[in-house]
Every structure is written in C-alpha cells, then in structure tokens.
Computed example of a mutant assay.
Amino acid sequence: MGTLLLDGLTKRYGEATAVAGVDLDIRQGELVALLGPSGCGKTTTLRMVAGFIEPSAGRVVIGGRDVTRLPPHARDTGMVFQSYALFPHMSVADNVGFGLEMRKVGKAERDRRIAEALRLVRLDALADRLPRQLSGGQQQRVALARALVVSPAVFLLDEPLSNLDAKLRSEVGLEIRELQKRLGLTTLMVTHDQDEALAMADRLVVMEHGRVLQVGSAEDLYERPANTFVAGFVGRCNLLDGTREGADVFRLASGAAVPCAPDAAAAGGKLAIRPERIAVAPDPAGTGRLRAVTYLGARTEYHLDLAGEAIVAVSPTPLPDDPRRRLAAGDPVRITWIPDAARVIPAAESPAR
C-alpha cells in the first residue's frame, strides 16, 4: 500500500489548459473524491495518475516513487473504469485474472488470488459466467475484483456508479466504501455526483476550470464553502445578493435586512443559506410569501418570496395536525433562520480557459 502525491500536475492542449497545477497529498488508506461538473478537469487528472495521459508539467508520486513517466502497468495502480471495460468473451474469473496473466503470475498463485478477489466482492459462485449473464451491479463487482486482484498501491475509480440505477448506486457505493476501509486502500475517485462524494469520501476536492477550489471533509465543504461555486455545487444553497452591514446583518439587494453569521473576514460577496436551515411558518403579518409547496414524502419543499428574492426551504414533512401542512401558494409566511446558519462568502472566480 502507499500514498499518492500530485505535485503541480498540469495538462495543456495547445492554448487550452485542462488541468492547472493540481497539488494534492492523499494519505495511506484515505479515499479522496475529485468532484466537479463535466469539463472541470477531474477525469483528466485521474487519467494522468493512471498513466493514460502524459502531464504537461508536474509529478505523480506513489509511495514515495516518482511514476510520472512510467507506463500504466508499471505504476502499481488498479483502475475501475466507468464502462467496466470487461471482456465479453471471457468468464468472470478470466476477466479478474487478466492483469495477473499480463504480469506473468503463475497459474496456482493466479487461481488463488482470483478466488480471493471474487470472495471479497461476493461473486465466488459466479466465476464461470460471462459478463452478459450478470446484472449491472455484478459487472461492477467484477471490475472491482479485477482492480483489487493485482494488490495495487493506489486504487483509482472513474465514475464507478454512474451506470447503475439509484437503488444500486447506494448499495454498491456502500460496498465499495466498506471494502476500501477494510483493505486500507489508498483511493482516488472521480465523480460528478455530490451525494456520492459526500457519502463515500474522507475528503473532497472540488474542481472548476482545471483548478482546485477547495479541499476538505464533507462537513468542511458543506458548512464552510470557500466561495459561491462550492456552496452551490456541494448540496443545495440559496445565494442572495447584497452587502454586509455591521457584524451580523446582511442587507439584501431589495433593501430588506436579514441576519447573518458574524465573520469579520467575510466583508463582501453573497449570503449563503442552506434550504434546511430556513424555518417557515404561517403568519398573516409575515414578510414572506409562499410561491409553491412541493410534497416529497418524507420532506416538503417551500418555494418562497422574501422581499423580492426567490429562495427555497426544505423541512421534514409536517404531521397532519401541523398548521404548515395546510400552507398553499400565495399564503403569507414568516421566514426565519438563526444568524450562524447564513454565511457571507466571496463569489467564485471564473477565469478563461
């Protein structure tokens, strides 16, 4: 096992910069997720780590060894591809053992390691089946076993759950996380799915325009986003224009004053308030108005007008005898939150690529 260090990793295509000087230190046994929209550079970064793309500048260091110029098979990595990339004409066992065969591992040792890898992913009873005879979740487990069987120092996951339906994504994601923790695998994962990243990763790396905007735990990024891009990308967030007035007052563009967290370091920008931190109650004298209410089973969404600003609040669905259960579009409401729930944060920069 080992650590993974990215030192100034950069990729340029002519005048365009796809990845701009990424610095990242992944500790032994840590799962780090690269998170961002399509085109942000996360997949290019992963493929440079794997050796499929040559960096324009910077280094990839695995377990203290500079592997930047080594071919993929010499890097001691195991990769799970978004498409699984299974050989359709080969059995499950042969797919899993392909990397070992390429490494000239003897048959007895190869059979032992294949059996162990299939046991880890609970597919030992399906060793003789072809990929087309498996479900999507089972094919994903075969891809995992194939990456694990070579005992990689670094485990690489490229959108590992994107081809699964919602129920399977949750189940397989939990299985990958449990397996990664049990085996102590140093892991770098790419995903565009914020919920997937929040649920699986020890740390998240939010990228935009090839740059790293913020690195931290799920709580760090959700509770203390560095800028408006991170706030809006990691979870839902209301972002309101205006200016800070005093320590704990924010003046909206409409002129209304609302509470905010006292923070001398954040003098300007936008007010960020998560939907679940907003309380809504019927109030004939309320300064807000309900634009729409959406019942979503366990939770209810309230689309609100606050002094001309459109915001969204989310709460557990009220019980039948709760007055909020009878709220309807057009009703006046009281909209409140505690000051510490609303933070003034800077706007994200959007450089030309």
Rank of each mutant, 00 (worst) to 15 (best):
L4W: 14
L4E: 00
K11M: 08
A16H: 14
A18W: 06
A18H: 08
V22N: 07
D23E: 14
L24M: 11
D25L: 09
V32L: 04
S38R: 00
C40Y: 00
K42W: 13
T43V: 04
M48L: 03
M48P: 03
G51M: 07
F52A: 05
I53Y: 04
P55Q: 02
A57S: 14
G58W: 07
V60R: 12
I62W: 07
G64T: 05
D66C: 13
D66S: 02
L70W: 09
L70V: 04
P71N: 07
H73V: 03
A74F: 01
R75I: 12
T77H: 01
A85M: 11
P88A: 14
S91Y: 03
V92S: 11
D94Q: 13
N95F: 05
V96W: 01
F98M: 09
G99S: 06
L100P: 08
G106V: 02
K107V: 06
A115T: 11
L118A: 09
R119S: 10
D124S: 13
D128I: 01
P131F: 02
P131E: 05
P131H: 06
R132K: 12
L134T: 08
L134W: 03
Q138D: 12
V142G: 10
L144H: 10
A145M: 02
P152S: 03
A153P: 05
V154N: 05
L161I: 05
A166H: 01
L168H: 13
Q180I: 07
G184T: 12
T186D: 14
L188Q: 03
T191I: 02
D195C: 04
D195K: 13
E196L: 14
A197R: 08
A197D: 10
L198M: 13
A201P: 15
D202A: 12
V205H: 08
V206C: 03
M207Q: 08
H209Q: 15
L213W: 00
Q214N: 06
V215W: 02
V215D: 02
S217Q: 10
P225S: 04
F229R: 11
A231S: 06
R236H: 15
L239W: 03
L240S: 03
D241I: 05
T243K: 15
T243R: 15
R251L: 12
A253Q: 14
S254D: 02
V258K: 10
D263N: 13
D263L: 06
D263K: 06
A265V: 01
A265H: 13
G268V: 02
G269H: 12
L271P: 11
A272M: 06
E276D: 12
E276G: 01
A279S: 15
P282T: 11
G286Y: 07
T287L: 12
L290H: 14
R291G: 14
T294C: 12
L296K: 07
T300W: 05
E301Y: 10
Y302C: 13
A310E: 13
A313N: 06
A313Q: 05
S315E: 15
P316Y: 08
P318C: 00
P320M: 00
R326M: 02
R326A: 15
T336F: 10
I338S: 15
A341F: 07
A341T: 09
A342N: 04
P346S: 01
A352G: 15
R353W: 15
